[in-house]
Nucleic acid binder design. Structure first.
Lengths: 117, 117
DNA sequence: TCTTGACCTGGAGTTACTCAAGGCCGGTAT
DNA sequence: ATACCGGCCTTGAGTAACTCCAGGTCAAGA
């Protein structure tokens, strides 16, 4: 499929996809005879993963490392696994942050209510 | 108190505090006779709020608006309230994102386990 | 044939910091 | 008294991760 469809499916925008590819975050993107990128379903799965990793705060350098490991084949699965596990721990920390922030917002809003009464 | 202590208490780093002040995000920061910033406990509370808003993804423009409203007095409390309520909804969305990402990671990790077996 | 739409590259612009250079000032050690 | 030191100051450059734009190519439809 073309880049616009890959963008629509993955959640990333077209510029970001091109940027990610240039930075080595997207392996195995082929070109048609017209020089345009063609995305396989696997490409789209990969982009979708990148979308969610980004959305939850993984830095590009880590994604870069992850993509490089992927390119080296199955022998790197333990390393990739530990990257994802690390990220999973980060998600837990983010959830705590959201809870903390919720508390603070609740306190502020309560104070506002008092003023408004 | 001095800027380094305000940084330690709020979670923001000193450069960020100076930057935020220059951008109008921090009202009522006074200077001592030596020209250095002096932070009151209220200043620190404000910075702490900014820290958590930033940490949970509020864009600077919104914080700017929030600070400007604050500077205009109690009449703007309803507006400020709605900014915080909007942000609270964003927190809920972020929590959903974290859950989605967790699922995706779990699936990937499961696949890795199969390879490793 | 002419135009339209989706794609391409290269480069500039944006956001939100973060770091570094160079300088001032108040307090301590000699 | 003076030399030094840490912490502060401003200004400006650098960075991350996009995002947008200009100018150009190409295939397909009217």
């Amino acid at each position: 499929m073309r880049i616009s469809e890959a963008a629509a499916r993955s959640g990333l925008n077209v510029d970001t996809i091109r940027y990610y590819e240039a930075e080595g975050l997207v392996p195995n993107v082929v070109r048609g005879t017209d020089g345009q990128r063609r995305f396989s379903p696997d490409n789209v799965d990969w982009l979708t993963l990148l979308y969610w990793l980004r959305e939850t705060g993984m830095p590009m350098k880590v994604m870069q490392r992850f993509a490089a490991l992927y390119a080296q084949g199955d022998a790197t699965i333990p390393d990739r696994k530990s990257i994802l596990l690390d990220h999973s721990r980060l998600l837990a920390k983010r959830r705590d942050d959201l809870d903390r922030c919720d508390e603070i917002l609740a306190r502020k809003l309560e104070i506002y209510e008092e003023y408004l009464r």
